[in-house]
Simulated assay, not measured.
Amino acid sequence: MTSQELYKLRFPIGEFQKPDTISSEIINSWINDIERFPSEIEKTTKDLSKEQLNWKYRPDGWNIKQVVHHCADSHMNIIIRFKLALTEDSPTIRPYYEDRWATLIDSTDDNLENSLSLLKGLHAKLCQLLKHISEEEMSKEFIHPEHGKRFRLDETIGTYAWHSNHHLAHVKQAINHKGQF
């Protein structure tokens, strides 16, 4: 497999591209993507067998169940990051080792119910928050020490809309390829 083919499997919708200008229309579109994600991921995975949940979306990638469990973990972290940025002055957030989390028992469980329930609640709560962030608050930031940079809230909404769509595409890709690469 060529490096370009591997890249396409890793980033089926491409990498996040921050627009030069982030308008309220773009933010609303991103929030809609975030809001829609739990039902889309549930609809896509609801009839999968245990064997299918173990299909990978690319060589050396995670399997479907790890992707779903990862989204719950990741999105738990992002709501905390938003709340920190909204209530503190440019806080430094705590990164985590998502690759290590993906090997823990709750990330390798064949039952997706808890993670899907968590995603539904998290996204409802997150979208409620996002829809009420003022234009001034959108410029608030948090510092990500792993990347050594500041992230604005408006940009982060886009990143997490992309993250949701990115991992939904991974799950669909694993299903379309039947885990075979």
Rank of each mutant, 00 (worst) to 15 (best):
H123Q: 07
H75R: 10
I34R: 03
V67P: 03
A124P: 05
T103M: 00
S39L: 11
I78N: 14
K120I: 00
T2Q: 03
L53G: 03
V67C: 15
L112I: 07
D89Q: 11
T159P: 01
S24T: 13
L116K: 10
I13F: 04
A161T: 08
S139D: 05
E51P: 04
I93R: 11
L104E: 04
F82C: 05
E136S: 06
H75G: 06
P12L: 09
L9V: 09
S90K: 12
V68T: 12
K149F: 00
I13K: 13
G61Y: 13
V68R: 04
P38E: 14
H166D: 09
D109G: 01
L116M: 04
R150Q: 06
F142I: 05
I22E: 09
H166P: 10
N111S: 00
Y160M: 00
E113W: 00
D47E: 11
N63V: 01
N54C: 10
K50W: 05
I31Y: 06
R94A: 08
Q128W: 07
K8F: 08
I79Y: 09
L86A: 02
K172R: 15
L84N: 13
L86S: 00
P95N: 13
E113S: 02
D73H: 09
L168N: 00
D110F: 11
P59D: 13
S107A: 15
S139A: 08
C71N: 01
K131F: 11
S74Y: 09
E136Y: 04
Q128F: 14
L116H: 10
K140Q: 11
R58W: 00
I64R: 05
T92V: 12
G158H: 02
T45P: 07
H123S: 11
R152S: 07
E155W: 08
H70R: 13
L112R: 04
A102C: 03
S49Y: 02
I27K: 14
E40T: 12
G14Y: 02
N32Y: 14
K178I: 02
W30H: 08
H163K: 03
W30Y: 15
V67N: 07
